[in-house]
Design a protein around this nucleic acid. Structure first.
Length: 275
DNA sequence: AGGCAGGCTTTTA
DNA sequence: TAAAAGCCTGCC
């Protein structure tokens, strides 16, 4: 099907934003995006025009929510005042097009447990290895194989040697503990999504190997708590360098998480991208 | 109780 | 070699 999108929507920026670790680039304006048991091939064919290899029905039920297309990101972005917060304004202009995906909460949980103390290429590699080790091998509409993100049960059933082969290091035991918590019903995303942001983070921190940073990422990217504000090594630097007198969270509620993404991606692209 | 130092696996630049 | 979308443990 073909699709028009007027709102902020930039596939390469989303792919590089550090919120998802399994997109693969298949062309200059094309990506392969696994989600649940499905895998979308999407190509930008012109400004604001996209070709998707899915039915209208699948788009409505699966991909429109996944891309959070019912939220108006340009309106949220325009709430930033260039005079009172020039840094955030610049970051948002530079990273315009990022959206907060509505990813599967279980996948987000495992992915961000794996993310701790590692850079993004290393995270991608481990997640992909885990999917190959324990995820179902499926085919997309074009007949290309991909691996679904593994259910908790499948991760629990992995022999230790197979889990070790995913290069998780000391995080392997955290992933196994999360899988056990999920299977035992101690990790209940339905309950978490009806909790307040603070409650959700506190509850997630009960998981072995999950501190405030990873819990915030799970809330933001897995539970779509868009006010959650993960503070990692990059954001810590931003707060120190750009906001020595404090960051005005109150001004930006309930969109703190979206603005965090603009700043995070902006800083990271400046330092590592060399621009 | 709450804060802090040290350790942890492996990859990346 | 240092740093990477950190957290746990032990010590004070």
């Amino acid at each position: 099907m073909e699709l028009h999108i007027d709102d902020d929507f930039d596939l390469p920026k989303i792919a590089d934003s550090g919120q998802c670790f399994r997109w693969t680039r298949t062309g200059e304006h094309a990506f392969r995006i696994p989600h649940g048991q499905n895998c979308l091939n999407i190509t930008r064919i012109a400004e604001g025009r996209y070709q998707l290899d899915c039915t209208d029905e699948e788009f409505r039920t699966l991909w429109r929510p996944y891309f959070d297309l019912d939220e108006n990101y340009s309106a949220i972005r325009r709430r930033i005042d260039a005079k009172t917060d020039p840094f955030l304004y610049r970051a948002a202009e530079a990273q315009k097009g990022i959206r907060i995906l509505r990813q599967d909460p279980w996948e987000a949980t495992v992915s961000f447990i794996i993310s701790q103390n590692r850079n993004i290429p290393a995270i991608r590699r481990s997640v992909e290895l885990l999917c190959r080790a324990a995820g179902d091998a499926l085919a997309d509409r074009e007949g290309n194989m991909f691996h679904a993100f593994p259910e908790a049960r499948r991760i629990l059933d992995l022999p230790q040697s197979a889990l070790d082969a995913c290069a998780l290091g000391y995080r392997g035991k955290y992933v196994r503990a999360a899988a056990k918590a999920f299977c035992d019903g101690d990790l209940d995303f339905r309950a978490l999504s009806s909790a307040t942001g603070e409650e959700a983070i506190k509850s997630l921190m009960g998981l072995y190997g999950v501190g405030v940073k990873v819990a915030s990422c799970i809330s933001l990217f897995g539970l779509h708590q868009i006010d959650a504000f993960p503070v990692d090594t990059w954001v810590r630097r931003i707060l120190q360098n750009e906001y020595p007198n404090g960051y005005p969270f109150h001004l930006y509620s309930p969109y703190n998480g979206i603005y965090q993404q603009y700043m995070f991606a902006f800083y990271r692209s400046r330092e590592s991208g060399g621009a």
